[in-house]
Design a protein around this nucleic acid. Structure first.
Length: 493
RNA sequence: GGGCCAUUAGCUCAACUGGUAGAGCAUCCGACUCUUAAUCGGACGGUUCGGGGUUCGAGUCCCUGAUGGCCCA
């Protein structure tokens, strides 16, 4: 590709203009990349403490976000993680040579400045610069200063530009960090130990999902990326830790949607000698408490609805919730053919060999979850959908399991853990049968886990929370991709 | 996987029923020592997502591919 040679004063394009400035800087013996710069204050601190700082000399640094030139003076807006601050660059103050060098400054450059804090006529806190230096030249221009970066694809592919240009994105990812930290704080306060379990292993389980496969070269074996944290955390409970949790990435080889990303963050916690009732009580404390600590309120807006997170949350059996919203008792319906037909009558596409669990999943997805705006526990899932949950004493076809829905999406899944290794083996066998019949989401037989269970898992309450979805909820984000810094996209062709 | 929509200058967006691709910001040149979406004057900047077709003529219509969004699965 040929390109016009840049004429002096008329560079062929914006990239060459910046390259040329860079070369001029190097030619002048100026280091365009800078070195560590000892700030006395962040930009936000200068603004916040301006009353006491007025008249004092400060050292601050930031990226140049706006530039207003006035002949022998100029104003620039600097930005760092703490905020934005205006600086005033006057020839009489910085000196003629240094002022001339400002011609080589571009939007997006990092600079460090020293100068006196003052207020302009209009009252804006400003630093009257007497010395400045380059801390990092930008060879590409930042996005448009007023509209920012709007193109959704560019925002995800080049998240750094999204972050530079859009304060709202900075706020969301910052809140994500605070939410995760707060989850840890609360779990720590409650005496849970944070653990780390394998992300790769020869057998995966803990959820109905297709795993990613990878390969270990020296061992010469295929390994799976984990789809849940459950089976290893339960081993730790067997080992004697009575309260454990893990926050970590899990990987599911399935489609992408506004609430699905192939890798996402799960929180799972397990408490020995507890049950799903305890998990419900803890959940309806945990979620509003996170909201209160991070956002300062338990009343949030999500997708245009006000959601009140305060306890107690609604409780409804799955059976009743479905009967109420779909008009059919799908849980109680034992005739599978009739169930398939009833689902089809309600506009669902049901495969001829669909199991009851698959039908219930679809009915839940379509009719029940979207309707559950206020926090709700859906309780008592059928045993065939819940191969790791304890059976109800009063009805062994159901389990002590609940899912929590908030804002119309599922954010948590919990149960009284199945601790009978004989029943667990039967459940795995039943799942393995489905696998043999082609259900790639069915559980694998996990002899190692069964062996562990045979050493004795105490009655245990366990729960998984979709951290990304919780962040969506608390930041009113319409898509999971808004709360994941670098969501998966197809590579650019 | 299916349906609908989108893709135009570095960024944000225009361009009626097919008829010379424009604006703002950014960039470059010039003026300006309290501006703040600074202002004023001038200039540069395009594979209209890729490929094919229809037509005297395609950003616009048709086919095909790519990527993304939304809805459905």
């Amino acid at each position: 590709m040929t390109r016009k040679p840049p004429e002096p004063g008329h560079p062929a394009d914006f990239l060459e203009a910046r390259r040329e400035k860079l070369n001029r800087l190097i030619g002048l013996g100026v280091d365009p990349w800078g070195r560590a710069f000892r700030r006395t204050h962040t930009l936000g601190q200068v603004v916040a403490e301006c009353a006491s700082l007025e008249g004092q000399r400060v050292f601050v640094a930031g990226r140049i976000m706006a530039w207003r030139s006035h002949g022998k003076a100029a104003f620039a807006d600097l930005e760092d993680a703490s905020g934005r601050l205006q600086v005033y660059l006057k020839r009489d103050r910085v000196g003629a040579d240094s002022f001339t060098l400002l011609e080589l400054v571009d939007l997006g450059d990092h600079v460090g400045v020293a100068g006196e804090v003052f207020r302009t006529r209009s009252g804006e806190v400003t630093v009257a610069v007497d010395e400045w230096s380059f801390l990092g030249k930008a060879l590409r221009p930042p996005p448009e200063k007023y509209h920012g970066l709007r193109d959704v694809e560019s925002r995800y592919r080049q998240r750094y530009l999204d972050l530079i240009a859009n304060p709202g994105t900075r706020e969301v990812l910052r809140n994500r960090s605070l939410i995760v930290r707060t989850l840890r704080d609360i779990l720590d306060e409650r005496g849970y130990l944070e653990m780390e379990t394998p992300t790769m292993s020869a057998v995966v389980g803990g959820a109905n999902a297709r795993p990613f496969v990878t390969h270990h070269n020296t061992l010469g074996i295929d390994l799976y990326l984990r789809i849940a944290l459950e089976l290893y955390l339960k081993r730790l409970v067997i080992g004697g830790y009575d309260k454990v949790y893990e926050i970590g990435r899990v990987f599911r080889n399935e489609g992408v949607s506004f609430r699905h990303n192939p890798d996402f963050t799960m929180l799972e916690f397990y408490e020995a000698y507890a049950d799903y009732e305890d998990m419900m009580r803890f959940t309806e404390y945990l979620i509003p408490e996170v909201a209160r600590r991070v956002l300062g309120t338990t009343r949030i807006i999500f997708r245009g609805n006000e959601v009140r997170l305060d306890p107690p949350w609604q409780r409804q059996t799955l059976r009743e919730a479905i009967r109420q919203r779909a008009g059919v008792d799908f849980v109680g319906l034992t005739d599978i053919a009739a169930a398939r037909q009833a689902a089809r009558d309600r506009g669902l596409e049901i495969a001829p060999d669909a199991t009851r669990g698959q039908i219930l999943d679809q009915v839940l997805d379509r009719f029940v979850q979207p309707d559950l705006i206020q926090p709700t526990f859906l309780m008592d899932y059928p045993v065939e959908m819940s191969p790791l949950a304890k059976r109800r004493r009063d009805d062994p076809s159901l389990t002590y399991r609940f899912e929590a829905c908030v804002g119309g999406i599922e954010i948590a899944n919990a149960f009284s853990e199945l601790n009978d290794p004989i029943d667990q083996r039967e459940r795995f066998l039943e799942q393995a049968g489905r696998r043999d019949r082609g259900d790639q989401e069915a559980h694998m037989m996990d002899e190692d886990f069964l062996t562990a269970m045979e050493y004795g898992l105490p009655p245990t309450g366990g729960e998984g929370i979709g951290v990304d979805r919780l962040v969506m909820l608390l930041t009113d984000s319409p898509s999971i991709r808004e709360v994941i810094a670098f969501p998966l996209l197809r590579p650019r062709a």
